[in-house]
Simulated assay, not measured.
Amino acid sequence: MPALELKTNVRVADPKAFSLEFSKFAAETLGKPEAYISVNYHYSELLTFNGSFDPALILSIHSLDNINPKANEEYSKKFFAFFKEKLGVPDDRGYITFVDPGRPNIGFRSTTFGALWG
Rank of each mutant, 00 (worst) to 15 (best):
P33E: 04
P33M: 11
P33Q: 10
P33L: 11
P33I: 10
E34S: 09
E34L: 07
A35K: 15
A35G: 08
Y36I: 06
I37N: 01
I37W: 01
I37T: 06
S38L: 14
S38G: 13
S38K: 14
V39F: 05
V39E: 06
V39D: 04
N40A: 13
N40E: 12
Y41I: 03
Y41G: 03
S44M: 07
S44W: 06
S44V: 01
E45M: 07
L46I: 11
L47E: 10
L47F: 08
T48W: 11
F49Y: 10
F49C: 03
G51M: 05
G51T: 04
G51D: 04
G51P: 01
S52P: 07
S52N: 15
F53R: 14
F53N: 13
D54W: 01
D54V: 00
D54S: 09
P55L: 09
P55C: 09
P55Q: 08
A56M: 08
A56L: 09
A56T: 12
L57S: 09
L57I: 12
L57N: 07
L57H: 12
I58W: 05
I58N: 09
I58Q: 09
I58M: 13
L59E: 03
L59K: 02
S60T: 15
S60K: 15
I61Q: 01
I61L: 10
H62S: 15
H62Y: 14
H62W: 12
S63M: 13
S63I: 05
S63A: 15
L64P: 01
L64Y: 01
D65W: 13
N66W: 05
N66G: 01
N66V: 13
I67W: 06
I67H: 07
N68L: 08
N68C: 10
P69Y: 04
P69C: 06
P69A: 06
K70I: 13
K70S: 12
K70G: 00
K70M: 08
A71F: 08
A71S: 12
A71M: 07
N72Y: 06
N72Q: 06
N72S: 08
E73V: 10
E73F: 05
E73L: 12
E74I: 12
Y75W: 07
Y75G: 01
Y75A: 04
Y75Q: 03
Y75H: 07
S76K: 07
S76G: 06
S76Q: 06
K77E: 14
K77M: 10
K77T: 13
K77P: 03
K78L: 11
K78N: 09
F79A: 00
F80C: 15
F80A: 13
F80G: 05
A81R: 03
A81H: 05
F82V: 00
F82N: 00
F82M: 00
F82D: 02
K84P: 03
K84T: 13
E85D: 15
E85C: 09
K86F: 05
K86V: 04
L87M: 08
L87G: 02
